[in-house]
Amino acid sequence: MEQVTAVRTTPRAVSAAWFIGIGLVIYALLLAGSEWLVYRNGRMNPVYKADVAAGDFDWVILGASHAMPLDFGNFNKEMQRRTGKKILNLAGSGTGPLYARFAFEHFLTRHRTRNLLYVADGFAFRAPVWNEGRFTDADLMARTPFHVSLAGLLVRYVVMGGVDPRALADYVAGFSKLNNRGRFQLDVWEGEASFDRAFKLSPSAERKRVEYLYPPVADERAGSERYFDVLADLIGIAERNDVTVTIVKMPLPPRFKSLLPGEATFDAALVSLAGRQGVSLIDWSDAMPDPGFYADTDHLNRKGVMEFFGKRLQPILSGTPLPTPF
């Protein structure tokens, strides 16, 4: 009886092994194709940018979407031309300090930089969705090239940083890349399409945008403290790598700024952190009140970026002594 069972089960087991084996080969081929597409259509993803960039840099820019217009419409090249400095913008949509630190740590495995410009936004220091949540964003992970070293870094973020283990599983298995509906499309952020547009003021759009950026959180204070600690870590990593850190707040339309909850508290905490860490902090949030400088409720358009760069940022990036911190 046992012999009969063995005769029947062995071909079934062999057959199953073949089925799984062939399936794994197909999976590997599809994954390789997806990875190739990540590079072919890559553009805005911070990890991709760090991968394809060559050499060392004078400046790396980190932050959320408010820093992204500095790289729209080839403006980064323009900044490099006018300052004579090599600049790499690793800002990402909705990326708080946790993801910024992740991107910067990855950057340092391949390059060096003399300076780091961190663009700080109040919303990014408040909600997990802009920090731990970014790692489970399939759209972001689908555009993130695979590296064993990055998987190792992600393990550390899962174990120490509270990132969902599913993000690691997704990254290692490449599921988001295989399942990416925009696999054949260029990795551009939707905001870039309106870079040359001037925003028509809309109180309801501003309200909705603020609601989106500031979702309800369980413990706002604890979250904020945690993400300031992450920023302090980021500054520590920079210092250990001889990188000078400058924190800036980007210009915002006055009415939009007035809607931001807890902005004064955030500013005070940022000043305190900058003081403790001995880094420069410049608040330009009131510097450009004209709505004509904005492409939407809160992002600079081309005109705004040119004005901002020419009058504010260029001296910093060029190495001119900083104005008095606020």
Binding site: G23, I26, F175, N179, R181
Partner: peptide, 19 residues
């Protein structure tokens, strides 16, 4: 037979909306 199952499995992975 196997092609049909692979098509279904990889159809799920490539084109499924899992969200």
């Amino acid at each position: 037979r196997w092609s049909a199952w692979y098509a279904a499995i990889f159809g799920l992975l490539l084109f499924g909306r899992w969200r």
